[in-house]
């Protein structure tokens, strides 16, 4: 009996050690896998960037005629192909075309259009470049990488749904604001009793962890008398309001408006479209560099605002 027990422990001990070791090696191998995936993603982004290079070709064709239209800012333009970044994924500002999807205002005709970008930022830039007659190469990249890339000179400019803030102004020069992008208060489409902040008394707010909406809700809960619930992701937050488990939510106005517009959030509607300060989005270049590009952007922006192109582009994505 005693021997049997000894034998048992002799067998069990190595088994345990082996399984622990196996556990360790399994976890390390999964880390490697993750790294590989990250690598692949980077590769994909590069591919998308390469494909985006096709755009300047068309622009070049029209460059001559636009320049003749006579703009003052492009007098100094020397024909450089600017590298301009957009956010890799930030609907409705920049959206990558996927197989089988159609973009508003953009018809997918060939396989070449797949992986191409559209969205407010992309179309505005395209319209401005066409008006001013400069060439560019669209470089979609991760939002957090954009300012470092501007500073290092990897890219010349960026149009990435970036809010103009004082902190960023220390690193980059901004154009005039091209879009006012604030937070909206969103309610269930059947809701009729919320139209101002005073109506929030006794209501339940849903917000997403770590967003400006959460900060605003927590700071104003006592003032307006509502309770705050926090969800880990946008989908749950929106579901809670659609189900009636919460009365309202706070989300970036262009983002939620676009989702309602394309029918993704048909149970929701915007009750108040501007909460607190409404920051402007700006086109950015590295501080003190590319002044010509910035001047052309500003001039082109003013021009397309005047000739109606601007409103047409915004209306494709945002319904008022």
């Amino acid at each position: 009996m005693k021997n049997a027990r000894k034998l048992m422990s002799l067998i069990l001990a190595p088994t345990l050690i082996v399984s622990v070791l196996a556990g360790c090696s399994a976890s390390s191998s999964s880390t490697t896998a993750a790294t590989t995936t990250a690598g692949t993603t980077a590769a994909t982004t590069t591919a998308a960037a390469t494909e985006a290079v096709t755009t300047p070709a068309e622009t070049t064709a029209e460059a001559g005629t636009s320049a003749e239209a006579g703009t003052s800012a492009n007098q100094a333009y020397d024909g450089t192909v600017y590298k301009i970044a957009c956010d890799a994924a930030y609907a409705p500002f920049s959206i990558q075309l996927e197989a089988g999807t159609t973009a508003p205002g953009k018809v997918v005709t060939t396989a070449n259009d797949m992986g191409d970008y559209y969205g407010i930022d992309v179309e505005l830039l395209d319209a401005i470049a066409e008006y001013e007659g400069f060439q560019y190469e669209l470089t979609p990249m991760d939002f957090s990488a954009i300012i470092p890339a501007l500073i290092s000179g990897t890219i010349d400019g960026s149009i990435a749904g970036m809010n103009i803030t004082d902190e960023r102004k220390e690193k980059v020069d901004f154009s005039d604001g091209y879009y006012a992008s604030g937070s909206a208060l969103v309610v269930n489409k059947d809701n009729t009793d919320i139209s101002s902040f005073e109506d929030l008394n006794g209501k339940v707010a849903a917000c997403k962890e770590g967003t400006t909406g959460m900060t605003w809700s927590q700071d104003n809960a006592d003032k307006y008398g509502f309770t705050v619930t926090v969800y880990p992701d946008s989908a749950s937050m929106m579901l809670a309001v659609a189900n009636g488990q919460a009365d309202f939510l706070i989300e970036d106005y262009p983002v939620i408006s676009y989702q309602i517009n394309i029918g993704e959030q048909a149970d929701l509607k915007v009750a108040i479209d501007a909460i607190g300060e409404v920051p402007q989005n700006g086109f950015a270049v590295a501080k003190g560099k590319n002044a010509t590009l910035l001047a052309m952007f500003n001039e082109g922006l003013a021009a397309i605002r005047e000739n109606g192109t601007y409103d047409k582009i915004i209306a494709e994505f945002i319904s008022d």
């Binding site: 849903a206 962890e209 770590g210 959460m214 900060t215 927590q218 619930t229 926090v230 969800y231 880990p232 749950s236 809670a240 919460a246």
Partner: peptide, 19 residues
């Protein structure tokens, strides 16, 4: 249960961290 917005201990910590 913080996934359904229950403000229990972990969620409380997460919300403070978010700020």
């Amino acid at each position: 249960l913080s996934a359904i917005s229950v403000n229990e201990l972990t969620m409380t910590a997460k919300v403070i961290i978010a700020r």
